[in-house]
Design a protein around this nucleic acid. Structure first.
Lengths: 233, 233
DNA sequence: CACGTTAATATGTGCATGCATATTATCTTT
DNA sequence: AAAGATAATATGCATGCACATATTAACGTG
């Protein structure tokens, strides 16, 4: 038995992981209580708890009070992806970033968003169209709606120097958000803006952020051809 | 000062969050040490530690030994997305799932994967082409390479009844993986297979999983038109 | 003054313990 | 026997303490 260092919580986590991987404990099976494991590893229950909590967080085991801990039947395949600020993403590629504001207007809430941005908001929505460049080549096209009820200060901002994204990140922290990714064919407009041929498959990301119950902003980002969003599990 | 319940670690986390959101502590600024906070909240240092650890995990604060804790300058926008087993995803939509194995062959490692599946593997790679259906309509097209050095048992499997994905999830747990998403235009083959017109923008997901240093499998999933991958922040 | 050594300090983590809480099993009561 | 009250139990969480470790600041020596 290749013993890992079993008196650190990470060590214990590794050992538990090994037992799950090696099917010492089958999927769905119950594993010993914290107290027993603590005794086996010769450590405090707190330490085992820490390890189990961590495994539960990553979805590998399911814990319920009184019911005990069991190995997850279908270990959900979770990936955490970091959505960077576009400027940083571009600069990380070693390219110079620039953005240009194509349009800034006060618009009625588009029908698509009536469900989230309550229709009662009337005209109080700021609409922004921005193009992000990497080394002077179009990188992503952004359409954004900002809820002025939630973020009235946005009215004063031109968003010409610093992008709306960065400003909002720093000034209107959100508590939760919905995110979705899709593929779409470039229409005439986006093809022109992103400098590609019509019909090209483009990667799109849509996001709505909220603070509490109030929507802050809706963004749709359409990336230039060839974009890949990467992540690790 | 709207006081939250400050003698639970979650309560303390909320209060700290509030101070960050309300800019009591500006981005980049140092926040008091655990000991001071513990005294202020009248709780044990451990409890404050727990709260701070959690905030650090979600990227809102940066912690360094001796250097202290400071509010993150650019709170990274992290999203955890769960990659479901296709069958479950389809069934969750209330549709009936079916898959069909289009091809099963032992192939040399494709050049694209030489970097990961070491070329020395020679022919020991199982290649699978699978089509997943939802209510008898194509849902996703899957191309997969399985490293038979790592998972020799796969040689015995036909993968006609249970899909390779499910079998691998249960029989070859991975320790890490690379994931990427992109958009592509349907070529003649994929258009035929997914029953759409050539050129349609399709959402694709690529994934390589490893156990330790040994690659297990590479999958490329191309979804039928209209697919959206959703997540929450 | 440059550079390596040492001390101070903030977080990281372990331990023993006790109580809280959710959930299940068991024991009543009707 | 069905329904409701009660006890048992496994995890969740807080406490106080001690020591480990990384990092910075201060110090001292050539």
């Amino acid at each position: 038995m290749a013993l890992t260092d079993t008196n650190s919580w990470t060590g214990i986590r590794e050992e538990l992981l090994r037992r799950i991987h090696d099917r010492v404990w089958e999927p769905g099976a119950q594993i010993p209580h914290e107290a027993d494991l603590a005794e086996e590893f010769g450590c405090a229950r707190t330490t085992v708890n820490r390890a189990l909590r961590d495994l539960a967080e990553s979805g590998l085991v399911i814990r319920k009070r009184r019911a005990g801990t069991r190995v997850a039947l279908n270990p959900p395949q979770r990936a955490t992806l970091t959505i960077p600020i576009i400027r940083e993403e571009v600069e990380a590629l070693g390219k110079t970033y620039r953005h240009s504001l194509l349009e800034r207007a006060y618009q009625p809430v588009p029908p698509m968003l009536h469900g989230v941005f309550h229709a009662s908001l009337g005209e109080d929505v700021l609409y922004l169209k921005t193009l992000h460049f990497a080394d002077e080549r179009p990188y992503a096209f952004e359409e954004r709606h900002i809820n002025l009820d939630t973020v009235p200060e946005a009215r004063q901002r031109k968003f010409e120097v610093s992008s709306a994204n960065e400003w909002l990140v720093h000034n209107a922290p959100y508590s939760r958000g919905d995110l979705s990714f899709s593929a779409l064919n470039a229409n005439e407009d986006t093809a022109r803006i992103l400098d590609c041929t019509q019909g090209t498959a483009l990667f799109a990301m849509e996001r709505i952020t909220w603070t509490g119950d109030a929507p802050i902003t809706h963004v749709k980002l359409i990336f230039a051809p060839g974009y890949r969003m990467r992540s690790t599990i």
